[in-house]
Design a protein around this nucleic acid. Structure first.
Lengths: 344, 344
DNA sequence: ATTAGCACTCACAATAATAGAGTGCTAACA
DNA sequence: TGTTAGCACTCTATTATTGTGAGTGCTAAT
């Protein structure tokens, strides 16, 4: 769908105005506020056209108009350009990361903090997922009686805990031995491809030990499969300040979204085109609870491999420009710091 | 403060009614609803007295009356009696726990689930804190270059991860050696009392190794000190259904409470008398955000030692009877299952 | 001591009136 | 032919007005 230059300009101004004020935009105020050099009557005509094309709606006859989701989509695709953040803000963010880049956890929660603060929306950050990375080392630690803790360490230096109860008692020495056996296998295998058949080939294992290993492997695989990476969210209450969220039901939806970490995680990591910044507007979201929201996400990488995702949830009347700029910059910062953190 | 029998009875009925309906209670409806055998006029007189004594207030002249915090306090201390839960509910809960008692994490989140479901308020459960327990074992796992993961295991079989960056590279072998050294010390020491002076007495350590140990010990201590145990919360949206929470500001307060896990944790674990069920009503809470809420908490134990806490957050107009009964029973269940889980 | 009766109060709901911002349409204009 | 001024009309939001009902306090009778 192509719009002529003037329609495009008018649509842009309307959207900008509505994003700022949350009030339906009328022709008169519009012509006053931004001097486009055309009269309200002309604007009215154009607006009527835009309404017919599906870009605008009137909440009721004889009120101003508000943008439809289609309008936001058009704005995002055809009008908006991602700006570079101001120099001052950039250095602020950069410094902030330098102060928090000692450990992975703090880096993640700091990212969420910064995101929600810069955008005034709700921020979500997914920590790196351990699954699918090359497993460097598995350490089995005896907890008590027949309960053990398995610590899986990836090539990149990330760790994940898995706690399981086995059929037999495991003391410190046995735990060490089991670790060694499993690590022997792991030298060159991606964990998710590991087969427990190989175990039977080992000679020096007693029947009991072999049985334990057979128990352990599926636990490892299963736990890594369903590995929902940590989800950090901040600024939940930011959204409460926007008039569209004075409705308690919307707030419920929001809370449900943020609490369903599994869903959130899948949604944010699912590939979808090659865009660096992914924008989902209102009903473009599959998740029922997100139909009234927009969500803008991006991902961070290590060696070209996607490590995790982060993004912002807000009203469909969202400041798409600003959020995109922020995500864009944060993405670079994250890529930088994560690689420092894990590979240094 | 002592009230005569009739005043006590009337106060009780008013509180019960208000808890159910959230509407100011008037003399006429009261005398109709519960046949106390006295006329509205008499009730009016008694109510006027109760108001003078600080137990009731009128939202406006010529409306019914609602209980004050003082009234709830009196009700909780002098009127209410903790009932045993119905047999059917008890067995339901018990079975539920049996289905979720394989690991600590699931048990905790299941507890939160059950609590919020049975009470219709917001539930909070603190997982056991590792601090102050006897440390059985520390395993140091090499992550990458100079980053290591320390896994601390307590006598009771709980584990905690601590990730740190050291000044030197640590490989798998060195990690094992460091573990052994530290475990040598730990045999009979509570970790928080461990001194790094002892390290210098060991002969077989190289200067580099000794230096590493000196770096590690403070990290261990610090991490365990500030150990905010995991906080599980559920049923945040339960409260939205009560009329007192149609106000967005109250919701903000609630979310702030639940998100300040550190504060919540300290508040719930701080000792305060010897009560099994601890009830804090409105402004009795120190935390500013909790001034409009009531919170009822209890603790669970292992060998007489407090392991963690759990409780329910709701409006001051809370069903104190029911919540107390539920907490009381859950407490027993938790004590039972935790000991099975950790000691079996 | 209790209660019936009565005048009074106040929040809340329903109704009506008014103002204001916006629209669509028509006719005049460049 | 595109643009604009003018005008009648529409609809919401605000304010004022009124009635209703549940409740109270007080007084006098039981």
């Amino acid at each position: 769908m192509e719009l002529n230059t003037r329609k495009k300009k008018i649509l842009e101004v309307i959207i900008r105005d509505y994003i700022n004020t949350a009030e339906p935009v009328g022709s008169r105020t519009l012509s006053k506020r931004c001097n486009l050099g055309i009269s309200p009557a002309t604007i009215r005509n154009e607006m009527a056209d835009l309404e017919e094309l599906g870009f605008l709606v009137q909440p009721h006859t004889s009120s101003g108009r508000i943008p439809t989701q289609q309008a936001y989509r058009y704005y995002v695709d055809e009008i908006m350009e991602i700006q570079k953040l101001e120099k001052m803000i950039r250095t602020d963010i950069h410094r902030g990361f330098l102060d928090h880049n000692t450990e992975l956890g703090p880096t993640m929660s700091h990212t969420a903090q910064v995101l929600s603060q810069l955008t005034n929306y709700t921020a979500v950050v997914l920590a790196p997922r351990v699954t699918n990375f090359n497993c460097k080392h598995v350490q089995i630690v005896s907890l008590i009686k027949n309960r053990v803790l398995m610590v899986v360490v990836t090539q990149e230096g990330m760790a994940k805990n898995i706690e399981v109860t086995l059929s037999q008692e495991v003391d410190t020495m046995l735990a060490l031995k089991l670790s060694n056996v499993i690590n022997g296998f792991l030298k060159n295998t991606i964990l998710s491809e590991m087969s427990s058949d190989l175990i039977d080939q080992i000679q020096e294992l007693s029947a009991a030990e072999s049985k334990l290993i057979h128990e352990i492997i599926p636990h490892l695989k299963k736990a890594l499969m369903e590995d929902a990476s940590e989800v950090h969210s901040t600024g939940l209450t930011n959204l409460f300040n926007y008039p569209e969220f004075s409705d308690v039901n919307k707030i419920k939806q929001l809370i449900n979204i943020v609490q369903e970490k599994q869903v959130l995680s899948e949604m944010m990591t699912s590939k979808d085109g090659n865009q660096v910044i992914r924008i989902k507007i209102g009903s473009e979201n599959d998740n029922e609870n997100l139909k009234d929201f927009s969500i803008i996400t991006s991902t961070y990488e290590l060696d070209g491999e996607m490590m995790g995702a982060f993004g912002v949830i807000g009203p469909t009347r969202m400041n798409y420009d600003n959020v995109s700029s922020v995500l864009n910059y944060i993405r670079n910062e994250l890529n930088l710091h994560i690689s420092n953190l894990l590979m240094k």
